[in-house]
Amino acid sequence: MTKYTEDHEWLDLDGDIVTVGITEHAAEQLGDIVFIELPEVGDVVASGAEVVTIESVKAASDIAAPLDGEIVEINAKIVETPGLVNEDPSGEGWFFKVKIEDVGALAEFMDEDEYKAMID
């Protein structure tokens, strides 16, 4: 099940682990990404906290943690090769995995149709 936030993140739930990335629309808006700073595995994050910094050729942006939880995995490949996020934002360009307590909290986010309606 993939959900979307108003901040153009996608959330992919598997058990109690949510994989987080940014949407193709967001990657396109940002332009070529040249630097990414990720949180550390083991960080306990609160919903809304800025956990990722992205620098594109034109701007700096933050990614907020969409949910309360603990960071259990990060995608070190995008730190080495930030352009992966532009090439494959919904696949190889994922950012981090967060283990969440409250799986029900995902219900508040948009599904694909609702997200598409928002960006149109």
Partner: peptide, 9 residues
């Protein structure tokens, strides 16, 4: 996602 520093702004 929030942008702080847009060169085209």
């Amino acid at each position: 996602m929030s942008e702080h520093d847009e060169m085209d702004g």
